[in-house]
């Protein structure tokens, strides 16, 4: 807890201008709204939430691919937008969801994994580059004979290994994984998760692990932030969050996870059918129209993040906050 954060988001806001069709005014989509997150050395931070909650925007902010509209993204204390793009690249690398799209279909595995080395001039000579690429393929468990294959000749799991090799070849200390196993079959998902866990231990990586799959996040993350409509609504250690979720949205998410236990039926999270239009988020707490516990004040004022009680962590909820203060 005492170590300085490697990567920090400080009250970050990120707006996109959205075109809504011919002759209609452009609107502003607030993809990320006042998010603060910190990633400490060697830690894995899970970010969960549903589509449109802003988790992928957070990933792009962390990679320095987009600039925040307000607030700051700090890499070891330095604002990321004041750093050289390549300096950022040496420290933070991504692994994306779809291994079919994240690899250039016209390049060989060797060229893909070697690209970061050539961009950074990191290899002393071609021999050195080839050695480092081969070592990286060994590390991610890809047979060396696949080095001259094209992505189209590989399976989904093998492609994701290539993507991981590319992310690690510069030896960054942070890897941002955005749904790294969502496009894979479950048997392959397990292989990739095991690989990521091995590499994290071997290389002492700090990881941001973004997923909609709560079981996977619980498996890999030490700390978890839950996002809803651009905001963090709850953050805690994985153990605390999965043992006792405070925010009604976190509770609904957890309830909606279908574990392979027959006879338990489909749970009812009582969320109502309507998902809000992210272009016109509801006033107050943005979750209140779907919240089974909503009160009058929830529609009026947005709750701030406050202590969760029971150990560390924060939650942004009027009702859960009241529950906390009522507890001894």
């Amino acid at each position: 807890m005492t170590a300085a954060p490697l990567l920090e988001l400080r009250d970050v806001r990120c707006d996109f201008s959205v075109e809504r069709g011919f002759l209609r005014a452009r609107r502003t989509l607030r993809a990320v709204d006042g998010v603060s997150l910190a990633l400490r050395p060697g830690e894995t931070l899970g970010i969960v939430g549903e589509s449109g909650c802003g988790k992928s925007t957070v990933a792009n902010l962390m990679l320095g691919l987009i600039r925040p509209s307000a607030g700051a993204v700090l890499l070891s204390g330095t604002p990321i937008d004041r750093m050289d793009r390549r300096a950022v690249a040496q420290r933070v690398q991504p692994v994306f969801q779809d291994p079919y799209a994240s690899l250039n279909p016209r390049k060989t595995v060797r060229a893909i994994v070697g690209l970061p080395l050539s961009v950074h001039g990191a290899a002393a000579d071609p021999g050195d580059a080839a050695r480092r690429v081969s070592a990286m393929l060994d590390m991610v468990g890809l047979p060396r004979h696949l080095a001259d294959s094209y992505p189209g000749e590989l399976s989904g799991g093998q492609r994701q290994r290539v993507a991981i090799a590319r992310a690690l070849v510069l030896r960054p200390n942070i890897v941002v994984c955005d749904e790294p196993t969502s496009a894979l079959d479950v048997s392959v998902q397990a292989q990739i998760l095991n690989l990521l866990l091995d590499l994290r231990r071997e290389l002492g990586l700090a990881m941001v692990f973004i997923s909609h799959n709560l079981a996977v996040v619980e498996h890999v993350a030490q700390r978890v932030a839950v996002m809803y409509l651009g905001r963090v609504v709850e953050e805690a250690t994985a153990a605390a969050l999965f043992r006792a979720a405070r925010h009604p949205y976190t509770q609904a998410l957890l309830l909606s996870v279908l574990t392979p236990e027959p006879g338990r039926g489909i749970p009812d999270a009582r969320l109502g059918a309507g998902f809000p239009d992210p272009l016109a988020p509801p006033p107050g707490c943005s979750f209140h129209p779907r919240c089974p516990l909503a009160e009058a004040r929830c529609a009026a004022t947005a709750p701030a993040l406050a202590g969760r009680g029971e150990g560390e962590g924060t939650v942004a909820c009027h009702v859960a906050g009241a529950l906390n203060s009522a507890m001894p």
Partner: peptide, 13 residues
Amino acid sequence: SRAFVTAARAVGC
């Protein structure tokens, strides 16, 4: 919009 272009940007290309 394909992820491999984003990946190249993230590498510092």
